[in-house]
Structures are given as C-alpha cells and as structure tokens.
Write a protein that binds this DNA or RNA. Structure first.
Lengths: 253, 253
DNA sequence: GCCGAGTATTGATCTGGATCAGGTTTCGCG
DNA sequence: CGCGAAACCTGATCCAGATCAATACTCGGC
C-alpha cells in the first residue's frame, strides 16, 4: 500500500510545533518563535527497522535522539556476551544523554520495532540553549527526570520482590502510554520476556511465570505480547509499601 | 582549640579559584573571570553536624549543593518507615539534581559526619550558564555523569552477586578517594554496614559477613570503619565479567 | 503452506542471601 | 567512669527466585 507509506512518511516529517509529543519534549514551555529555531536544527531521518542501531557503545557522541514513533531499547554488553537492558524509550523520550559526559556513548541503542527518531545535534542544541533560557531549563528538567527515573529503578532493583518489579514495570508503561494518548489498560509489549527480565533483574522464566500468575489472579489478561490490565488497583496495592515513586506512577483521573 | 577552628573555617570559605576540588566541580574548564562570576553566587554556610539535613523529601528546590568536606547520604523513606539509601556523596560531588524536574526534592540529604557544602542557587546558576557556555557544558556533563553512574549501579543491582556488589562499592570509593588526593588503598567508611547494605540491596548481615570473608581471603584488612585494600587485583577480578563501567572504576597509574 | 529458529510456557531442583536469633563490641553521654 | 543504646558479628534456618530441562507455540522466510 504505497499510499499508506506516503501518509506515514509525511507524519514523520511533522514540525515540532505540530507534533503531538511537543508537550513531553524539548519544546515544552517555549513560544512559537523559539520552537521554530529548535525545529531548524532537528534532523528527521528515515525510520529505523527493527533491530537496527541508533548508536553503539563507544561511538562518538554528537546528537541526542527523541523517539517519535516506536520503541528504543538501550543496553550494555557484558564481557561474557550477555546483554543487560538499561532502558526502554517510548515516543517523546530522549535517548543518548549518557554520551554527554565523555563525548562517547556508554551504551547501545536499538529499535525494537520500526521506529522514527528526531536527531538533535548536541553542539547546535547547546548554542540554542544558551540563547533560549526556557529551552535550557527544559533540557535540565529532562535530564533531572532521567536521574530520578533511574533512582526509582535502583530502589526497585535493590529492595523489591519479582512481583513488585513487574507490577511497577507495567504501571510505568501504563502511565506512559496514557500520557501519550493511548489506552492505559490495554497495550502491546514491544519487548520480549527476556528483555523485560534483563531490565528488571529477573530470569525470563520468572517473568513468564508472573504473567501467568497475574492472569490467574484476574489482574491481567495476557495474550503473548498483548496486555490488558483488568485490575489496576491490584497492581497499585503491590507497590503500596514502596518508596515515593508511586505518585509519579499513578494515572491522573 | 579555637585556633584550629579558625583555620578550618577559613578553609571552608576558600574561593572556587583556590579550591582543590575545582577540577571535579562546576569550574572545570572555565577561565578566571568566569570562575569569579560563579564564585559570586556560591553561598558558603557553616558546616553541618552529623545527622543534620541539607534538604528533605518534598522540600522546595532552590539550590544545588556541592560537598566540600565530609560525606552526604541521599535516601528515600518507604511508607513502612524503613529508609533506602540512594547515594553517597564525597567532596566535589553535586547533591540535589533530583529537584530540578518538579521544583521539589524527591529524596532527603543528610550529613554522615561533619560536612561542609557550597550552596549554588539554581535560578542564578541558570542565568550564569546562559551567559557562560563552558559552565553550561560542564553542568550538562555533571548531569550526564550522574545518569551514567546510576545506570552502572542499576546494572550492578540487577545482575550481580553480593560479593561483586561490595567489591564494586569499595573500588568506586577507592577511585573517588584517589581522585581527591587521598589514598586509594586505605580509608575510613563514613557509613554504617546498614547503610552500605541498603545502598547495595543487601542485608546488613550479608555486608558484615562479606567484610569478614574478604579479610579471611587477605583481600582486605578491616578494622571497624577503617578499610585497607591488600589485594586490589582480587577486587577487580570479581568484576571482570561485569559491564563496561569497569574502565571508569580503574585507578589510573 | 511448511520448516526451523527464536520465543514462551511449565515443571523440578537447587542455592544465595534474607531472616531470625543470640551475643559482643563500641561509643556517646551523664 | 560506667551505663545504655547502637552498631556489629556470627550461627541456624528458610525461601524466592535462579537454573536446568523439556515441551509448545509463533512467525518470518522460502
């Protein structure tokens, strides 16, 4: 269906000011003129196929990337070959912040499905952030958010049971889908059980068993990668004696 | 000894350009004039006593804090009362970056010993970073470093054994002390076994047993809070099948 | 439409580290 | 200096989740 293709390509080229993700992204809080300036430095390349990389460990850092559609997984490689997932990035989320410190990427980023990203050359972004205080502030905010997100995950990995980890993971996805205009109770996982396990510090068998368990309890309806949350409160209850991150996980009504 | 007190107070008031920590801190890469501008907004208050807070969860965010001497612990409180340590901050390290995102601190920061900090009001810092590109870049770098540090810890908490975690913790301290001009093989821990355990996702009993174990193996010499590393290679070997963070843990010779 | 490799489920067993429990050392403080 | 509360160490037990193993499903490619 070539017509379909053209439509989706046009969507990819949408300017920041017309982009539905703008309120989650760098333009948040900017006026129209400032957004145009930002827009001028953003590069919108063709979508990545499933499995292809944005960058790999050791690559020279020169840009940040914002997911536009699809999902990006970031991961590191252990000397013994096994990989460790360090993040899943949904539309509107920034990838590549790890590279700023030493001008080299310290992890790899690959597409879990067909994925479009906006590339933001960092040197040019820094010029703009100097000139546009609101943009600078927003970038600081995004980086701060990254820090707090990772802190929450650290706490989760340090203290929680397998059940709590998976509940937190599903709620995090639910909230993020909701913020992006999708259903918070029904969605598709773009990652494998293996990858979820790696991210949560669990064996893939444990993840699989937990899905079965949640299904038995009527908390979830699981059909392979398709998830339906039947009992949201049940998931929240599992996190009720968890740390502060909870408020940020709650779907606003 | 009042004379001693005066001397140490004077030390605390040292300007950024005369501060031994400048190369680890915000002034890195700035010229003398720029440092003076930064210096002008830094507030140097009296040292904190052991146990007193810089800020607590929920406090309004208005400043970043750089540790000058001593140690700061950041932590969150679980609903059930138990606390979870999320970081230990040595001289030259920044505390409070978590607060930028929502103008509120999401964790608490308390002194583990008598500790001096430089307070940097964030609104004024943002004005300066707009005007001084090098300062802006350095702040981005510090935030990026915070992100990669937390990523490493996540990987550690997700995948490693208790022995590997403690080895990584000790090596991290060793490198950081070394970078600050102290011995990388002999130092005092300012935190309790309990706090180390909380940070590493282990029970305090496990931490205690591991210290004994490392001592039996002649890897460490432990006398309460005093640690001497007898066999550095042994510690590195424990992390040899760990992810990339290793190079950043290695003490340069 | 079928084949084969990846992916997921389910069961059986094993173990690292949590938890519980006791005793000892350290240290702040009156 | 001595008292009490922390902090620490050590031993015994237990269990959540890893690991091993076997089977079932799915889906992309020819």
């Amino acid at each position: 269906m070539p017509k379909n293709k053209v439509v989706s390509l046009n969507k990819l080229k949408v300017a920041c000011k017309n982009c539905g993700l703008a309120k989650l992204c760098l333009p948040l809080g900017l006026d129209s003129g400032d957004i145009d300036q930002l827009d001028a430095i953003v590069q919108r390349n063709r979508p990545l196929h499933r499995g292809s990389h944005i960058f790999q460990t050791g690559d020279v850092f020169h840009s940040l990337y914002v997911v536009k559609t699809g999902t990006i997984k970031t991961y590191t490689q252990c000397p013994n070959g096994s990989e460790q997932v360090v993040g899943f990035h949904l539309p509107g989320e920034v990838v590549g912040l790890d590279g700023i410190e030493c001008d080299k990427h310290l992890c790899s980023a690959k597409a879990l499905e067909t994925t479009a990203v906006c590339e933001v050359p960092f040197a040019r972004l820094e010029e703009l952030t100097s000139a546009i205080p609101g943009l600078q502030h927003q970038l600081f905010r995004l980086m701060s958010r990254e820090i707090t997100k990772e802190t929450s995950l650290m706490v989760l990995l340090g203290k929680s049971t397998a059940e709590e980890r998976l509940a937190a993971f599903l709620l995090s996805l639910s909230v993020r889908f909701h913020n992006r205009g999708f259903s918070p109770v029904e969605f598709n996982l773009s990652m494998s059980r293996q990858e979820i396990g790696s991210y949560l510090g669990l064996a893939l068998e444990t993840v699989s068993r937990l899905f079965t368990h949640f299904q038995d309890e009527k908390t979830l309806l699981v059909d392979r990668k398709h998830i339906e949350i039947l009992n949201m409160d049940q998931l929240y209850n599992l996190l009720s004696n968890q740390t502060t991150c909870l408020d940020r996980l709650r779907v606003p009504n």
